[in-house]
Simulated assay, not measured.
Amino acid sequence: MTQPTVLVLPGLGNSGPGHWQSWLEARLPALNRVDLGDWDAPEPERWVERLDAAVRAAALAAPGPVVLVAHSLACILVARWAAGSDAADKVAAALLVAPPDVESPDRVPAVVRRFAPVPTDPLPFPAVTVGSRNDPYCAAARACGFAALWGADFIDAGEVGHINDDSGHGPWPMGETLLKDLLAQL
């Protein structure tokens, strides 16, 4: 099988140098971070356009499958993009970590609520959604519900916060294992 192209999709604010996505990129240099544009004031349509362009470019550049590794707001982005893009068939799988509840004014800032409503269409590719029991941006039951709507497997990561720098996830071996398991299934 040809090598997959793995696209890393950070959420609001981008994933800084101490974030698990940055740690993973350092460990697996073949990963490619997608520049979604304005990281602090994301525009849903612009982010969808940039993801679409990145997937199409990856599919043209290499014959292997495309795999998405999304964190936080990028999980909602993936679901939104997949519901409306004819390029979704170019994606072989996705790892969706810590989706925020963009419909909750009590949990997320207004800038994130621009991505509401949460897309409810099943994803056209296999996916794993990882949620936390104490994520300040999304109740575990909601994250599990998103996974069910999207047809994704759900992994309860325990009480690990938002799985970001603030919750101590620079190095996140579980994320590396989940990605490698997903890649092995292709």
Score class of each variant (00 low, 15 high):
D121V: 05
D135G: 02
F154R: 03
P119Y: 05
P42A: 00
A74S: 11
L51Q: 04
T120V: 14
P105L: 05
V112H: 07
G170C: 11
A58C: 08
E25W: 03
D106G: 10
P171Y: 04
A87C: 07
G175S: 02
G131E: 00
N14W: 12
G84V: 01
V48P: 07
F146P: 09
R133L: 13
T129M: 13
H71C: 11
F146K: 08
P124Y: 13
D165V: 15
S85C: 00
C144Y: 03
R107E: 13
S104K: 04
L178S: 15
P65K: 14
R80L: 05
A53K: 08
A58T: 09
V66H: 04
P65T: 13
R80Y: 03
A53V: 05
C75T: 10
F146H: 15
W81V: 10
G13S: 07
T129D: 11
V91M: 02
P44V: 10
P29L: 02
I163L: 11
A59I: 12
L68H: 07
A157T: 11
V91L: 02
L12M: 08
D86S: 15
A53G: 15
W23H: 01
S22R: 15
L24E: 06
D40I: 06
K90P: 01
P4R: 11
L73K: 04
A147V: 13
P29M: 03
C144W: 08
Q185D: 12
P126L: 04
L96V: 03
W23L: 06
L182R: 07
L77V: 08
P10K: 08
A61R: 12
P173F: 04
K180S: 12
W150V: 14
D86Y: 08
V69M: 07
A148K: 15
C144I: 02
A93I: 03
V78Y: 02
W39R: 02
V78G: 04
P119T: 11
G161S: 03
G37F: 07
L186S: 05
A79N: 00
L36K: 05
L9S: 04
Q3V: 00
P100M: 07
G158H: 09
T120N: 05
D181H: 11
P42N: 00
A147R: 15
G64R: 08
N134A: 08
V102S: 10
A147Q: 08
P4A: 14
L51M: 01
E159W: 11
D156F: 09
A152H: 06
G18E: 15
S167W: 02
A157Y: 06
L7S: 13
F125Q: 12
G64K: 09
P44S: 03
S104T: 07
G64Y: 10
E45M: 12
P17K: 10
P136V: 08
P44H: 01
L183V: 09
N164G: 03
A141C: 13
D35Q: 02
Q21L: 11
